[in-house]
Design a protein around this nucleic acid. Structure first.
Length: 841
DNA sequence: AGCACGCCGACT
DNA sequence: GTCGGCGTGCTC
């Protein structure tokens, strides 16, 4: 408490020292907001800490904000409001992160608030619920209406109720907001905000032997006494079996999970209760770590000769360069090399971040890492709950987690002493965030963060992105290659199946070539597993009437609806619209409504027909939506009870099955001929990655069958020969000729409006203005994207290509932003929205 | 983003 | 005449 002198002193210069904070608010507004800091808080607030502030007209909202700047210059044009509460004694966000936020907002052309929104797990933002309380000073009950009186009687009974609770009490059809408003006006109730942290650590109840019985003699006495109480004795014995107190009294401190003691029988529960009552046992609570301690850490991993050499080369490169590309073919055992490097970095006392694409993270890799690093390792995954993510965040701050494996958003964790960042499967497009801004690329953000913290970055891939390989070729990144498969397994033998020819010879059975069917058959006989890849989910992508050519289309998007047999419905893969399958053609009434094309669901179906006694599993978005479905499918396939796995690109990543010796690939042509300048690169990556699932263990060479209508395409030849360099040389030339990345930076602007004409008009004007300033070689479009309407918005794309050298990219972005703002504030173009995607993929 | 304010149609 | 629909503009 303040003493007299202190109070006098602070009131003396109250006007001189008024503090203000510029705050990052979690809203998409491109500026900071200035608030006053209450006197008592002034000494405690630090940059990077969170505060609670009132926001909006009539304090309609309460937000969690981050302190970005502290100063004492009052804003000129308005009266700053007060910060309500300080949430952190120490900064939650460190200075590197604040720098990152600012950099991202500028680079990706978004607001800092948007960056804050993706960076912080929502458990670190606050939930506020308005509460309503009876005002004890109220004594004009004659003013109340009947409804109000009922409500007030309820409120008198309880200390406070939330809006939600009140509306439930009032029943249906009552406008609770209006009612409360009126009550507030009459001063009958008080409304206040109850603020609380969303994050609640998970507690588990444990029990332990009362310290009195830790000594052997006392314990024996106890057991003797319980001789006549067999149930209780059994409970104590059970405890001692789990916790050998006599051998090691210290173990008793840690206690035992209550649920372990009363596992099966309910009787032990009451016995335990009695024992607790008689002070034989005591209960206590501990915060449960979200990731169970793994058993004995298995520290040593042995590298093969090739792995050892790769690790040494990487270390040597790191002496000269901060970024190294590790190009190791599929199945070469990159993970072991990573583990080795991570151990080195941790031993040096610095933090390590290991980024993986989303789907690869749920798999075996994490288990392997956990076996090595135990509870020193944090896991940051989008499938985890908020609480779990908050725990990892706090664990990084506290130093508990020196090492984190995580997805894209793990780059936002509060590291301050990074020594090594690994970006595994560096080429993966899922590192780029697509939908809400900021549309960032986690690899590039990681590179930036590592640069600031002088950490080394290892980019790993069997099929590096052209951008990264180009940098390595230019000498800007170090390059280390590993061309030997682990344990001398050989690369699979890749064969091209000419579907045109098989069709001519009428040996195709639906989507299956006879070559593929034969191979599957043989694999079944050998009891080896097969993987089938088709990058399209659902049963079939079209439904069409044979008589009148009607096709099922989404009412909101310009796409056909996909038929899903399991749920007997048509679905839009863009907006989620669903509808029943028509029995008759809606236009002509014909019964000949057929499905066209095929997805994973149809393949699964047909496999079951051709191989009735085999077990087939399907892995795609539809079968993995449930909580642990993904892990379950993997475990089931791993167990060997399943013969074939059909899947979308989900199966291409990080799966490591010993017994898979055959991979079948459908519709490779659709992948290759996708209208996009990256299609060739993508196809190579995807097909090489799937192929890599075959024959990962020495013993037998795996086989890959690619079905194609044109086996002579040069890219297929490159894939067969695993000729990454050949592909690179050919592709990079094209990129240079047409000034695409890595020779330029791309910024895509997507103009959207429910009215096609307005959308087009806005896009054309924007495009014209940009072309004027930047030149027609740098601005492409506007053009309608492949799907020209999504969720009832008509889209027009403008693509801006800016060369990497000799251009002030910041100025260009500022100019683009200005032109966009012009459009958005134009009264004639109301409701137009523009999506900015920097470094679009 | 989300919320208040404000201006037009279909209801007591 | 009012309730409530959505379009518009602002938020320290």
């Amino acid at each position: 408490m303040e003493n007299q002198a202190n109070t006098l002193f602070t009131s003396f210069d109250a006007d001189e020292v008024t503090f203000f904070a510029d705050l990052i608010l979690p809203i998409p507004v491109p500026k900071l907001f200035t608030y006053r800091i209450p006197r008592g808080m002034a000494d405690l607030v630090k940059i990077g800490a969170r505060v609670i502030v009132p926001f909006g007209k009539k304090n309609s909202r309460v937000l969690t904000a981050i302190v970005a700047r502290l100063h004492n210059s009052p804003p000129a044009n308005y009266q700053a409001r007060y910060v309500t509460e300080l949430l952190d004694e120490y900064p939650l966000v460190n200075s590197y992160q604040l720098e990152l936020f600012r950099w991202m907002a500028e680079y990706y052309m978004c607001c800092v608030g948007e960056v804050m929104n993706v960076a912080l797990p929502s458990g670190l933002k606050i939930s506020s619920q308005s509460k309503v309380q009876f005002n004890p000073d109220f004594d004009y009950p004659e003013l109340l209406t009947e409804h109000e009186e009922i409500l007030l009687t309820e409120l008198k009974k309880q200390p406070a109720l939330t809006y939600d609770e009140l509306s439930r009490l009032a029943g249906e059809g009552v406008n609770i907001a209006a009612l409360i408003k009126s009550l507030v006006g009459k001063k009958a109730v008080i409304v206040f905000e109850e603020i609380r942290e969303k994050y609640v650590p998970k507690m588990i109840r444990k029990i332990r032997l009362h310290p009195n019985y830790e000594e052997r003699e006392q314990l024996l006495v106890l057991l003797q006494r319980l001789e006549k109480l067999p149930k209780q004795q059994e409970v104590v014995m059970r405890y001692l079996r789990h916790v050998p107190v006599q051998h090691n009294p210290a173990l008793n401190q840690k206690g035992l999970d209550k649920t372990i003691l009363n596992q099966d029988d309910e009787l032990s529960q009451s016995s335990l209760q009695t024992l607790v009552k008689n002070a034989v046992f005591e209960t206590f609570e501990v915060i449960q770590p979200r990731f169970a301690d793994t058993s004995a850490p298995q520290g040593e991993i042995r590298l093969t000769e090739h792995q050892q050499r790769a690790a040494e080369q990487i270390m040597a490169r790191f002496d000269q360069q901060n970024i190294v590309l590790f190009h190791g073919i599929t199945g070469s055992g990159k993970t072991e090399v990573y583990i080795h490097l991570i151990q080195q970095a941790l031993a040096g006392g610095s933090q390590v971040l290991y980024l993986l694409p989303e789907i690869a993270l749920t798999t075996q890799i994490v288990v392997r890492l956990q076996r090595v690093f135990g509870d020193k390792m944090g896991i940051y995954h989008s499938k985890f709950s908020d609480n779990e993510r908050v725990e990892v965040w706090k664990g990084v701050v506290s130093g508990q987690y020196q090492f984190v494996v995580g997805v894209r958003s793990a780059v936002f964790l509060p590291f301050d002493n990074l020594g090594l960042v690994i970006v595994d499967e560096e080429h993966e497009t899922s590192y780029k965030q697509h939908d809400p801004a900021p549309r960032y690329h986690a690899r590039d953000v990681a590179l930036m963060m590592a640069h600031w913290q002088q950490a080394k970055v290892l980019l790993g891939s069997a099929t590096p992105s052209l951008e990264t390989y180009y940098q390595a070729k230019q000498g800007r990144y170090g390059l280390v290659e590993l061309h030997h498969r682990f344990g001398d397994a050989t690369l699979p033998n890749i064969l091209l199946i000419d579907t045109k020819q098989e069709k001519r010879q009428k040996t195709m059975k639906n989507e299956f070539s006879s070559a593929l069917l034969d191979a599957l058959e043989m694999n079944l006989e050998r009891k080896e597993q097969s993987i089938l890849f088709q990058n399209r989910r659902g049963y079939s992508p079209y439904m069409q009437c044979e008589d009148c050519d009607w096709t099922a289309e989404c009412p909101n998007c310009a796409v056909s609806l996909t038929y899903h047999q399991r749920d007997a419905e048509l679905r839009c893969h863009y907006c989620g619209h669903k509808e029943a399958v028509p029995r008759l053609c809606p236009t002509c009434g014909s019964t000949k409504v057929k499905t066209i094309g095929f997805g994973t669901e149809k393949l699964e179906d047909q496999l079951q027909v051709y191989f009735p006694s085999s077990r087939v599993l399907r892995m795609d978005l539809d079968t993995t939506r449930a909580k642990d479905a993904y892990g379950q499918i993997i475990r089931e396939f791993e167990s060997g009870s399943v013969d074939m796995l059909v899947g979308t690109q989900m199966i291409t990543k990080g799966l490591d099955f010993d017994n898979v010796s055959l991979v079948g690939i459908f519709d490779a042509d659709r992948l290759i001929h996708f209208p996009d300048f990256r299609a060739t690169e993508r196809s190579f990556q995807m097909l090489t990655q799937v192929s890599g699932r075959a024959g990962r263990r020495a013993g037998r060479q795996g086989t890959v069958l690619i079905q194609t209508a044109n086996p002579h395409q040069s890219i297929l030849q490159k894939i067969i020969q695993n000729d990454y360099k050949g592909l690179y040389e050919e592709e990079i030339q094209e990129r240079q000729d047409f000034n695409y990345p890595p020779f330029s930076r791309l910024i895509k602007l997507t103009v959207r409006h429910p009215d096609k004409a307005i959308s087009q008009q806005a896009a054309e004007r924007l495009c014209a203005e940009l072309t004027d300033a930047l030149g027609s070689t740098r601005v492409l479009g506007p053009e309608q994207p492949l799907v020209e309407r999504i969720r009832n918005q008509f889209l027009f794309d403008i693509l801006i290509k800016i060369e990497r050298e000799k251009v002030n990219i910041k100025a260009v972005k500022a100019y683009i932003q200005d032109r966009i703002n012009d459009i958005l504030t134009d009264k004639g173009l109301r409701q137009v929205s523009i999506v900015i995607d920097v470094d679009c993929l």
